[in-house]
Amino acid sequence: MEKTLAKKDFPQWVKKLTSWKIYLPKKDAGGRWNYAEADGEDVLETRQATLPPKTILFPQNEILLEFSKSRKGNAETLEVKEVLPPAEPTVVFGVRPCEAKAAWLLDEVFASEPRDIYYWMRRENTTLVGLACTPPPSDNCFCTSVEGSPHAEEGSDILLTDLGDKYYVRSLTAKGEALINAAKGLFEEAKPEDRKKVKAVHTESEKKIQRELKGARAVSEKLKTMFDSPFWDEEAMSCLRCGICTYICPSCHCFDINDEIIDTTPLRGKRVRTWDTCQFPDFTMHSSGHNPRPDKASRLRQRLLHKFQYFVQVYDKFMCVGCGRCITMCPVGIDIIKVLEKVRDHGA
């Protein structure tokens, strides 16, 4: 389904979606962009939020179950209650196409057996409305180098393209159509000249991407030979071992599960899944005390290998969507493009 929507009607569309919970990028008091709930004054902007919409599909804390112990006389009973995410229909507007593509990558991971019901309940209840990037939201965008594009459709339910005074609205799934049907009167059928214009805008947007990694597939191949290279020690010298690069990454999805006690008498607690990262020393710590990734070099290597070698081997896709967040946010300027270029040219 291809339609157009006058830009001035966008707030109307948001207002009509009364049975959805709505998020879109908003600027906070400190000037940062975040995915926040709609508040009646909603406009779409091509901005990169600090945290990707991963926070909505795969929140940092997810309660899996609750448990409590009770005692009657000498008999102790342990009660375990399943906790599922709230089944509320949700829309995220203004998702960067790379972020939607990251959701599509997470789908691969969480669809493999055993299927992750917590992720899928949220995913199936969430409609992602992408907005093509014109211009790129960051100087460090490099989506076109990792088989993506500023107007990629993977993962989105609707892709919007800014045509000046209106949005070109391309619905990609039934979820997307439901969103359009909820405010039918606002949309017009797309005309052939709109289609032509969209194509031109899309082609133009690709040219505006400022950064490039040539030969990403070759990097994947090369990485297979570099596991034991001293290269990683050199590259990781300035790494601080913090979790920024992975926590703000739209496609990083590693987690930890802990039982968290709320009360001890009587025992009451919850099992919580939280984000975790390969960059922390305790991520791979065995209970024996052995740590197979004992230093920051091996952990930096892991991040790159997961994204550019292992994932490619299993799913034939890069686990990096080229949003450039890790480059922009790294406190010591570790630049994934530069590192991968060095990998590519290593020993040549």
């Binding site: 071992r241 020393p281 710590m285 740590n291």
Partner: peptide, 26 residues
């Protein structure tokens, strides 16, 4: 978001085991 960048960047945060970790369990 508990990325611990604050402690990672700090020259005084050199404890082998931080109170939020549990890595040195003997």
């Amino acid at each position: 978001i508990r990325c611990y960048a604050c402690r990672s960047a700090c020259p005084m945060c050199y404890c082998d085991e931080c109170v939020v970790d549990s890595i040195q369990l003997a």
